[in-house]
């Protein structure tokens, strides 16, 4: 019961959805979209588990005075404030009937005040990390690493005025040797070939793994025991 029923559910749901992709007739047509919507709804139910877990972890930290416990209070306060403004629509000009994220509501204001700068700043950290990663990773240690380095370097050079300045002398039928042209060529030709090989491989990987799951060959997520 505990183990066979889930396997049967996976088998039936998976197969029916494959069939539904080819059968427009009722009850199969749009079944994929419907199931995706079901998934979204189940995901909202699951918020009770996730949110509950988040709150519990931080309450435990505070009550046991674990390291950094005052910051757990910040998390809980932020959580409670936004939940009050969002779930209960406190501070919403339209009251409980107003749109949850309407302009002028506390919920939307919190979004603009807190989220936008935090999101943009975390995102901007990437500029620094791109620099440190290039310094570390682009070393001509092996043949592969050298190729990685050269390709990246040509593209970088092609995006600055230096590229043209260094190679602007190539004209006429040698124009393709100008770094910006070379950079575009790398993007359009070898890069494209690599991307396609990766994508075809991914598709086969997905097909094979999906089949293993549907047939019950892959069942780690249900456990390997025999209860």
């Amino acid at each position: 019961m505990r183990r066979t029923v889930p396997l049967v559910i996976t088998l039936i749901v998976g197969t029916v959805l494959i069939v539904a992709e080819f059968v427009p007739h009722k009850p199969f047509g749009n079944l994929g979209d419907k199931f995706s919507m079901y998934f979204d709804i189940i995901a909202v139910f699951a918020f009770i588990l996730g949110g509950g877990n988040l709150v519990r972890v931080h309450i435990t930290k505070i009550s046991r005075k674990k390291a950094d416990w005052p910051f757990s209070a910040v998390t809980l306060a932020g959580f409670a404030l936004v939940l009050a403004a969002g779930l209960f629509k406190i501070g919403n000009p339209g009251g409980i009937r107003g749109d949850v994220a309407v302009v002028g509501s506390l919920f939307n204001d919190l979004y603009i005040f807190i989220f936008t700068p935090l999101q943009a700043s975390m995102f901007a950290l990437l500029a620094f990390y791109v620099g440190s990663a290039s310094y570390r990773a682009f070393r001509a240690k092996t043949v592969e690493a050298t190729i990685l380095l050269v390709a990246a370097f040509v593209i970088l050079l092609g995006r600055t005025p230096f590229g043209l300045w260094l190679t602007g002398g190539f004209t006429g039928s040698w124009e393709f040797l100008q770094v910006p042209n070379l950079a575009n060529w790398i993007m359009d030709v070898p890069n494209l070939a690599g991307q396609r090989a990766i994508m075809i491989g991914i598709a086969l990987g997905v097909i094979s793994m999906s089949l293993r799951i549907i047939l019950g060959v892959e069942r780690t997520y249900l456990g390997q025991d025999n209860d």
């Binding site: 910051f71 969002g86 919920f107 919190l110 807190i114 989220f115």
Partner: peptide, 17 residues
């Protein structure tokens, strides 16, 4: 910590409504 708490509640509220 502010980001985690506030954003978790944000997506929960959006999910609900």
């Amino acid at each position: 910590h502010l980001f985690v708490g506030a954003s978790a509640a944000y997506w929960m509220s959006m999910g609900f409504w």
